[in-house]
Amino acid sequence: MSKLIAGNILLFPNVNWENMWEATQETLYMSVVALLFTFLFGLLLGLLLFLTDRGNLWENRIIQGVTAAYVNVFRSIPFIILIVLLIPFTRIVVGTMLGPSAALPALIIGAAPFYARMVEIALREIDKGVIEASKSMGASNSQIIFKVLLPESMPALVSGLTVTAIALVSYTAMAGVIGAGGLGDLAYRDGFQRRNTDITLMATLIVLVIVFILQFIGDRLTNRLDKR
């Protein structure tokens, strides 16, 4: 154990482990909370995109057009610009521009459209015949959504969520711009600006570990759910 610590000190002489741990927590906090809301909003937007499309349950040109426009616009704005653009909005919603919570609105607004498109693709993959069979049995629209559309697309929804979660982790690295903290912020400020390469390296390693764990969990879950 002491050898390990000694090794750490030798390899990463400038790393302040307390700061590193705090930054890790901030990154995890931002990612997890943002992922939760992204999942909810993305799922809603994705369902809306799918259901209002031609030939589907809630076919509606106008809603489809507006939703698609919203999704396309927010998906195209580079995150670093989005985060700056949203500063006034964040002030109103979160009440402060300090700490990791300040990054949440931008993270969610940036990632939800991204996930929405994946939800839409997942729903499109469902065999039309299955939806038709459900209608022929007298299913209502809400029964079709909750008993057919969501369960049948679940593996794709989960694997899409995995991709989104990983994208979110990398978005949080940019949250430092508005002083939200996190590993990216630490790597940039303490690592790059003060020429402590070891801090940058360590922060990178931790981000990699987080990404690998997410990918692993996502893959396992997807495989378990997929009965095709």
Binding site: V130, M137, P151, E152
Partner: peptide, 11 residues
């Protein structure tokens, strides 16, 4: 109703 391609829920 039954169908040519069965249309079962695979999940």
């Amino acid at each position: 109703m039954i169908f040519q391609h069965f249309n079962l829920l695979w999940s």
